[in-house]
Write a protein that binds this DNA or RNA. Structure first.
Lengths: 348, 348
DNA sequence: TTGTACGCGTTATCAT
DNA sequence: ATGATAACGCGTACAA
C-alpha cells in the first residue's frame, strides 16, 4: 500500500505540466487497498459496505482530490440532459428574462443549460452551434442565420427557435403574435386620435419582420396615411439606437404624432430624442413600446407598451425541446405563441 | 465475439418507449457495412477515407439520426471544461452583466458555462452545488451559505466567490472595494453640504456587509451625526424594495437630506418614494446609488452612482478559476478587486 | 484505404 | 461486505 502510494506519485509525468492528471477511481482504489467497485460504493453512498472501509476510502479520495469523471459517469448512467441556450445580447434586459424562463423550466426537468451570448454577431451564431452540437442534446435560441445554415451547423441536434412565426422556419419554434399585439396597439393610438404614426423598426430593412408587417397591415386596415417611408431602422436595439433612429424619423416625418418602437429600449430612446427636440410626450408625440420591460415603468413618462410574458416564452421553448426529444409533434400555431398585452401608461 | 454482438443488440426493443435508444457508431457501421473506425473517420472529417464510402457512411448516419455521444467522446478526448455560474437573480440587471463577463472570458478559453438562477433562495444554492459538483469542473458565483456549508456541497470542486472581501472566506474570491467607493461617495455628499445621510442597506441587519460598514466608517470619519439608526434594510434588492425601505427611513429620519442606496435599483426606488412624499431630488434630498446600471441614466433625475465594471468582475472570476485549475495561487487583495468609480449625474 | 484491438473512467451484475 | 468482469460509446495506434 505504501509502495503503491509511492508508485503513482512521480510516474513518468511531464513533471510540472501545470495541472497534472486527475486522480481516477483506480488511484483511489489502490491507495485505499480496495477494488474500484468498493470505491464506487463509498463515493456514491451505496449500502453494502463496511463503515470502516468506507471511511478509509473516502479519506483516500480526499487525499488524492478525487472527483468522478462526469464523462465516464454519463457514459454508463443515462439521463443527463444538457440544453444550449443561445441569446443575442445579455445586456438587453429582454433576454435575461427569457433566459430565466428557460432556466426555470429546464431545472424542473433536471436539465442543465449552457448559455451562449452571441453579442449580435451572426458569425458567432455558427460558432456557438458548432460547439453545442458536440456538447448539448438540444438548442433553443435566437438565430438570424437561415434554416439551411443552421441545419449545417446543427449536426442533427434538435433546435427550437425563439421569436419566429411558425411558418418562417422548418424548425420547431416559439413565437410572438405580433399581429395580435399591433392590432391592440394601433387601435389604441387611433382611438386616441393619431393617424400619422411612424415606426422605429429593429429588423433589417430588406427583411421586414413580423412586427413591421403587422404594423403596416394595421395601418392599412385603419386607412392611415402611412407606408414604408414612415419606418426607420434601428440596427442597434438599444436606447441609443432608438435615439438615433428617432432623429432620422423626426427629420423625415415631422408631421408624425405617434411612434411605435420595435422594443421598449428603442421606444425609450424615442422619448428622449423627442424631448430633446422640444416635443412633449405624449402631448405632442405619443410613444409606444413592445416587450414590457420593467424599465418602462421607471422612465418619464412611463412607457405604454405591448407587454410580453417573457418567462413564459422561455418555458414554452423548453417544452418544445421536450416534445422534440420525445419524438412528439412540437406545439404549433397559437399553442406556441405568446400574445402581447397592451399596457397603457403615460407615454401614449 | 459474434455472440457478444448479438447480445447487445436492441432485439427486445421496448417498442415505443417514446424516445428509443440513440444510434451508436456501431449501428452506423453496420448499416453502412463498414467498421466503426471508418465511421469515426467519416464523421470527424479525417482524411484517409474513400470519398464514396465516406458519403455512404454519412448517409447511414443521417438515416439513423446518429450523433456521437459527448460522454464517450469526452472520455477519450480530454480538455472540455465546464464551469458553473450561480447567480442570485437574473431579473436584477446587475447580474446579467456580470454573467456576460464570465461568458466572454470562458469562451475565450474554450470553456462552457452552465448557469443557475438561484432566485435568492439559500436552499437552492445548495441544490445547485449538488448538481454542479457532478457536472462541472469549477463554480463561480454568489453564495450566502457559509464556507463550511459550501465546502460540504462542493465535493472538492474549485469555487470562486463573487463580491466577498478576500478575508471573509477561505475560497478564492473576486471582490468589490466598497471602502474605496464609499469614500468617494460620502466625500461627494459632504462636499455638497450634506451631513444627515441615511442608508438603504441590502444585507441582513444582523450581518452588516462591506457597504454598510464602509458607509458607517466614512460617516464617522467625517464626523456625521449618523449611526445604525440611519440604516434601514431592503430585503428585496429591487425598486419596490427601495421604495418600501425609503418609506420607513423617511419616517424614522425626516431630517435626512441625503440617502445612499445599496444598489441602483434600491436607489431608484428611493427617488420615487421621496418624490411621492413631496421631496424634490436632489434639491430636498440627494440620492446616490451603487453599481452603475445603465438604467440609472434613464430615470429622472438621472442617478448619481458608484459605478462598477461588472463585466470585469465576471472576467476576473474566470481568471481566478483558471489559476485554481492550474494549481497557482489565486489573485488576492487589490488584484482581485474591482474599484467603484463615482459617476455624478443629477440625483446627488 | 480499411479493420483490429485496446484504453478512457465509471457503474451494474454476478460471484464469492 | 467485497471483488472480478463486462459493458457504456468513442478515438487511435497499429496491423493488414
Amino acid at each position: 500500500m505504501w509502495a503503491d502510494n509511492q508508485q503513482r506519485e512521480p510516474r513518468g509525468e511531464e513533471s510540472d505540466g501545470g495541472l497534472r492528471r486527475r486522480a481516477t477511481i483506480h488511484d483511489v482504489a489502490r491507495l485505499a487497498g480496495v477494488s474500484r467497485q468498493t470505491v464506487s460504493r463509498a463515493v456514491n453512498d451505496k449500502g453494502e459496505i463496511d463503515p470502516a472501509t468506507k471511511e478509509r476510502v473516502l479519506e483516500a479520495a480526499r487525499m488524492l482530490d478525487y472527483r468522478p469523471s462526469r464523462f465516464a459517469r454519463g457514459l454508463v448512467r443515462k439521463g443527463t440532459v444538457t440544453a444550449g441556450l443561445v441569446i443575442p445580447d445579455l445586456m438587453n434586459p429582454f433576454f435575461p428574462e427569457v433566459a430565466a424562463g428557460v432556466l426555470e423550466a429546464a431545472e424542473q426537468r433536471g436539465w442543465q443549460v449552457v448559455v451562449w451570448d452571441i453579442r449580435t454577431d451572426d458569425a458567432r451564431e455558427r460558432e456557438a452551434l458548432d460547439v453545442l452540437s458536440h456538447q448539448a442534446d438540444a438548442v433553443v435560441g435566437y438565430f438570424k442565420n437561415d434554416d439551411d445554415v443552421l441545419a449545417r451547423h446543427l449536426g442533427g441536434m434538435p433546435l427550437v427557435l425563439l421569436e419566429r412565426g411558425p411558418h418562417q422556419t422548418r424548425f420547431a419554434a416559439v413565437g410572438i403574435d405580433a399581429a395580435a399585439g399591433l392590432e391592440q396597439g394601433i387601435a389604441h393610438l387611433v382611438r386616441t386620435g393619431h393617424r400619422r404614426i411612424g415606426m422605429l423598426d429593429g429588423d433589417r430593412l430588406d427583411a421586414p419582420g413580423p412586427r413591421r408587417e403587422a404594423f403596416l397591415a394595421e395601418a392599412r386596415r385603419h386607412g392611415l396615411p402611412v407606408d414604408d417611408s414612415w419606418v426607420v431602422l434601428c440596427p442597434e436595439h438599444s436606447v441609443a439606437g432608438g435615439e438615433a433612429g428617432m432623429e432620422r424619423l423626426l427629420a423625415a416625418r415631422p408631421e408624425m404624432t405617434a411612434v411605435f418602437g420595435f422594443n421598449d429600449l428603442i421606444a425609450v430612446g424615442a422619448i428622449r430624442a423627442a424631448r430633446r427636440h422640444g416635443r412633449q410626450v405624449p402631448a405632442d408625440l405619443a410613444v409606444m413600446g413592445f416587450d414590457g420591460l420593467s424599465l418602462g415603468e421607471l422612465v418619464e413618462p412611463a412607457l405604454t407598451t405591448l407587454h410580453l410574458d417573457k418567462r413564459r416564452l422561455g418555458r414554452l421553448a423548453v417544452e418544445q425541446v421536450a416534445r422534440l426529444r420525445a419524438g412528439e409533434e412540437p406545439l404549433s400555431g397559437a399553442d406556441a405563441w405568446v400574445i402581447p398585452e397592451l399596457v397603457v401608461r403615460s407615454s401614449a
